[in-house]
Amino acid sequence: MSALEIREVRKDFGSTRVLKDVSLAIDSGEFLILVGPSGCGKSTLMNAIAGLEPVTGGEILIAGEDVTWRTPAERDIAMVFQSYALYPSMTVRQNIAFGLEMRKVPKAEREAAVERVADLLQISHLLERKPAQLSGGQRQRVAMGRALAREPKIYLFDEPLSNLDAKLRVEMRTEIKKLHQRLGTTIVYVTHDQIEAMTLADSIAVMRDGRILQLGTPDEVYNDPVDIFVAGFMGSPSMNFIAATLEGMAGDYRLRIATPGAEDLTLPWPASREQPELAEWAGQPVVLGLRPEHFSEEDERLGEQAEGTLFSAPVTVVEPTGADILLRLPLGEQEVTARVGPKCRVGAGEHLALRIDMGRAVLFDPHSEQRLA
């Protein structure tokens, strides 16, 4: 039985349909992340699951029970908000215990629950402080503690880290990951940060314009995107999209990339990656998708090089990040981003030889933007 099942849920605000027949199911203990750009409907879907927004149509089931028209209190969920939503006049202890008190949990059980989550979140030394005396990260731990003090069927996190600075976001991501591994709880988590999604999720639902475009593991949505939007949204820097023409026939397909002022670049398409549908695209324009890490620096000192097709181009921008270097350079009529090692010694304006790993490349239909191969 699924911990959460959403069946063709629709939500209208006036004449505007914000959720368009959304369906998904997650298992008990699964960590699902809803990700997408602002306005895609992910927070509306979260509010519908929580019962904060009545749906226009469809069904929502929690642990097999239809809760579509139940109030939030009747759904057995706990929610952590972006704004923390702590009571300023209460201590940390009182904030964590408040929900249990409202449910008339005996005092001894409340105190035991507070001590348990405070120890789990390493905030035992903060129990007698007020929210105004806490840092942003500490307040977020208290908000999480209030949810964890209960043992609901599902935990809902609505962009809980968006108010934190970059360093603290990374630290809190790690804490949430550890927390899920220890407790094995079912979590639905909303974020617009695709790095957050990749690092935390068991499964990711990529949303756009009120629809789920792809639901899969982080590896699936990153390496096997269903369309150009998913491919471009997941990954930082995002995937490069290069205009090309598919030539040849089965067993010998090639991609020709027009290069202004120079000989066109031809890239072989791996026979192992062929799809029967590619025959219909021979002689037709396609979009080649290459991630920055699909490029590798050619080193003349090495006897054996990485597999791939070699090309050379002048570097226009060099962006050191510490762990690696991002390069901007022309490929065909486009400028692409390549990720190389930190020891690469190249300056803007210099030519660099790179190999392209076509074994991990993807092809898209330039009109529908759907994946071809």
Rank of each mutant, 00 (worst) to 15 (best):
M1K: 11
M1L: 11
M1I: 01
R7L: 13
D12Q: 13
F13T: 03
G14A: 11
L24Q: 04
A25E: 06
G29V: 07
S43V: 15
N47M: 14
A50S: 12
L52C: 12
E53H: 15
T56W: 11
G57K: 06
I62G: 02
E65S: 14
T68N: 14
R70H: 15
T71S: 15
Q82A: 07
Y87A: 04
P88E: 07
A97H: 07
A97N: 13
R110L: 15
L121F: 05
H125K: 03
L127C: 02
Q133N: 11
L134D: 06
R141F: 08
L148D: 04
A149Y: 06
Y155Q: 03
N163M: 10
L164I: 02
D165L: 02
L168R: 08
K178E: 09
G184Y: 03
T185L: 08
T191R: 11
M198R: 09
T199P: 01
Q214L: 04
E220I: 10
V230C: 08
G232Q: 02
G235Q: 13
G235I: 12
G235L: 11
F241W: 10
A243I: 03
A250H: 09
D252H: 11
R254W: 03
G261S: 09
R273A: 14
E277P: 02
W281R: 01
A282I: 00
L290E: 04
L302V: 06
L302S: 08
E304W: 13
E307C: 05
E307H: 12
L310D: 08
A313Y: 04
A313H: 07
E319M: 05
G332N: 05
A338E: 07
A338K: 07
K343F: 12
V346Y: 05
A353M: 14
R355L: 13
H367Y: 04
